[in-house]
Design a protein around this nucleic acid. Structure first.
Lengths: 217, 217
DNA sequence: AGATAATATGACTGCATGGTCACATGACCG
DNA sequence: CGGTCATGTGACCATGCAGTCATATTATCT
């Protein structure tokens, strides 16, 4: 989506630009993110920007590409476990998501804005991305039923809705529970204690999803 | 928050204005909602607007007042049941929320934007409103434990997080499941069949929250 | 060095916004 | 009728935006 000129840029300049752009789209939704501000911040002329990208939308879509690529890179780094049963798989997914959020807090913010925020244009790629989570979760629930780990009489649509809602808010919740801000996450790694706490939250969540809140009474 | 002048307005003019304003803040987040557009749409001069409200923020806060008042009115209409146990109470809450969403779809949209969207200013009243849901749910879970309907070893914080996440997304989910748009909701009542379907979804949700997705295995 | 192509630049256009203000209109009262 | 007060009005200001373009700078090759 960017032009050759953009890729010809010296690495440091290109990276500085990207950092600034990601920050801008992490701090502001699409309409309020400002090309002018990005240019000012990154120290490049407005005209130059339009030599790199056709327009604001092209930059935004490229940032999403970067986010997707980054996520793929993370997944490639860790072998996807085979033969996991539903609740183990869910837990693993939670952990993956958290790992991405912690490794790329600003990018993750851009991504979640893109998925759940409002945009002044319609984009099919994005639309598909949006649906993907629902479809994947439905598939998982169905497999869960097939393998016997999920009750046969479960209300599939409603269960999927639950999973997606929780998944979407998980990042925010972890941040609150661990007292983290995107800044602190950028500047330091998670301590083992923090990871343990996150792990505990995942365990609790899985426990709740699997057995509910109700007592046996 | 509005001036006397605003309340002195002929009823139809004031109501027309409010309808337009609510639509504007339902369709756009705070920053993108436009006073100029509201004035144009409502057929009043820009100067007049500033005779009714100190500024854009004052209008916005007033709309929230209206929303809260409207919700109170709904609750006053229906007697709050006493002595309900947790899961019955939750179901009742779901139904209340849905009834409000269906009765005032546009206002509900303004409200949820206010609670979960971003604002260019900080407001203590709003902050309190935001926390209220979490506090109330925590209280309910604790009561649930006390009365024995909730497992004693439940992870309270995580359970509350689950409940809040689900509750926040419930409106959207119902809309999708029942194939409704704010417009259709404005123009017609829900059919008994649609209400039944909503009720089924509530039942399913409660069932999932209480017993989880897991099979007994 | 000279010529050609790639890149950088920032003033500029056109547009929309929130908010102001000097003035116009209308209502009520003696 | 005249005067006073409440209300209505829209041109106007400062600001910020996305995007353009003529011009200037720098690289590259002969």
């Amino acid at each position: 989506m960017p032009t050759d000129t953009f890729f010809n840029l010296p690495d440091d300049k290109r990276e500085r630009f990207l950092t600034v752009a990601i920050d801008e789209f992490a701090d502001n939704d699409y309409r309020n993110a400002s090309v002018s501000r990005i240019c000012r911040e990154a120290g490049i002329a407005k005209g130059s920007f339009y030599q790199y990208f056709a327009d604001k939308k092209a930059l935004f879509m490229y940032l999403l590409d970067v986010a997707v690529a980054e996520k793929r890179a993370l997944l490639a780094q860790i072998e996807v476990p085979e033969g996991m049963r539903l609740f183990a798989k869910l837990r693993w997914l939670f952990e993956m998501q958290a790992q991405f959020d912690f490794a790329h807090p600003r990018l993750a913010e851009v991504g979640s804005r893109a998925l759940y925020g409002e945009l002044p244009f319609r984009d099919d790629v994005l639309e598909t991305l949006r649906e993907q989570a629902t479809v994947a979760y439905r598939q998982m629930v169905l497999e869960g039923i097939a393998e016997g780990s999920v009750r046969e009489d479960v209300a599939v649509d409603t269960a999927v809705f639950m999973l997606v809602s929780i998944f979407n808010e998980l990042g925010n919740h972890l941040q609150k529970r661990l007292n983290l801000t995107p800044q602190t996450m950028m500047t330091r790694q998670l301590t083992p204690e923090e990871w343990a706490e996150a792990g505990q939250i995942f365990d609790d969540l899985i426990q709740l999803l699997q057995n509910g809140l109700g007592s046996a009474e």
